[in-house]
Nucleic acid binder design. Structure first.
Lengths: 211, 211
DNA sequence: ATGTCACACTAAACGGGAATCACCCAAACG
DNA sequence: CGTTTGGGTGATTCCCGTTTAGTGTGACAT
């Protein structure tokens, strides 16, 4: 057809993404918007607009909105896992490794509040369970890395109370609670964050572990 | 009144609610649905249907959906506050009062997971800040009641580290974290709940308070 | 060159959410 | 009676995620 000669491309269409390039663009735009505006703010249409593509196009590359955001969450947990693995290999006391991991965890949460909420506060309302398979698996590995040094402590008979497993869960939960509250209620009269983190870690580690 | 003798008016309309009776009906229906199906499940239309009234009618009695649910949340916090006040007046050691309050808090959360999430995990996405005035105030009083015995402990010089305020915040956060995780990730391999709660309380209290 | 095939993409629509609009009806009051 | 008024309503608006049906284009076989 002569059409191509008359007008180069009257369509405002984006050129085809070579390979799976488009998928990456979508993820990048989605992450940017999600980080800035949270779950509800990151709508399919907004993401599509940012990429310069129709909203329908997102469904070529992702099953649904949750899959996009969960993939972002997976990335984030992946980073966390890497940090934990790194700390796990350091030749320092197990208690110190535990402390470093928890500090990194809380720092991550406070630096990425929306992503943290998505992954760790995702109510059953918002994201259905089946979709979280990959995320949950990464989370498990993250927790396993964290449990390592704690089981060392337990094996050394340094645990004052409870099993290694419950100690690990309790430590995680305490840190989760702190950052979750700081994130969801930022306007309360909180003591300085560093002090809260320190009191949490010092208090619990001193309470759970004999030296 | 002859009204009652006349025909019951073929209109499918509900008879006028005397006083603000209708408002209570709406709250009751909303609470039932919300407890069973969570925030997203409790839609305006569903609540209206349950009451037997058009969805528009809800806006006669409430500014918007969030006001309905927040009122339910306020009720719940009110109960929590009452429990805390009761415990606060018991003639027992301050540490024991703290422990009882936190146990009651966690029991409340686990017994009312949806309500707990609404009030204490409500992301900024879901419920805008301004609307939470009453809820926040009740929460403050609840926390103040909880802080009382902790400041007693601090004043007695029994605090191992940090201020009374930070100790109170950390204790609250740790318990919040535990129940929040139990609620949002019920399928993980948790240690028994009683053990987790015990380890959290024993650990932190032992770590923070000298005896 | 030419058919035709597959794919990346689109516009339009659907169903369902919250919220609003313009009305309406019956009771109460004078 | 007429008027007011407060508790209602159905239709509508706007936005959401998602689906459907169709389209332009590049690649490849002929």
């Amino acid at each position: 057809m002569t059409v191509a000669l008359k007008k180069p491309h009257k369509s405002a269409r984006k050129p085809k993404g070579d390979g799976h390039l488009r998928r990456g663009e979508i993820l990048a735009a989605a992450e940017r918007i999600f980080i800035a505006e949270g779950y509800a703010g990151a709508t399919i249409r907004k993401i599509a607009d940012a990429v310069g593509v129709s909203s329908t196009a997102l469904y070529m590359h992702f099953r649904d909105k949750d899959q996009i955001l969960l993939e972002i969450g997976d990335d984030a947990i992946g980073q966390l896992l890497a940090v934990n693995v790194d700390i796990a290999h350091r030749p320092i006391d197990a208690v110190e490794r535990v402390r470093l991991m928890l500090e990194a965890y809380m720092k991550f949460a406070l630096d990425n509040p929306n992503t943290y909420q998505l992954v760790f506060c995702g109510s059953r309302d918002v994201i259905s369970k089946e979709k979280q398979a990959a995320t949950a698996e990464l989370g498990d590995r993250c927790f396993a890395e964290f449990s390592g040094p704690i089981h060392e402590i337990a094996a050394a008979g340094r645990l004052r109370t409870g099993s290694g497993e419950s100690a690990a869960q309790v430590l995680w939960a305490a840190c989760h609670g702190l950052v979750a509250l700081l994130i969801t209620m930022p306007d309360r009269n909180w003591a300085p964050r560093e002090e809260l983190m320190k009191v949490t870690l010092d208090g619990l580690l001193h309470g759970l572990v004999t030296d």
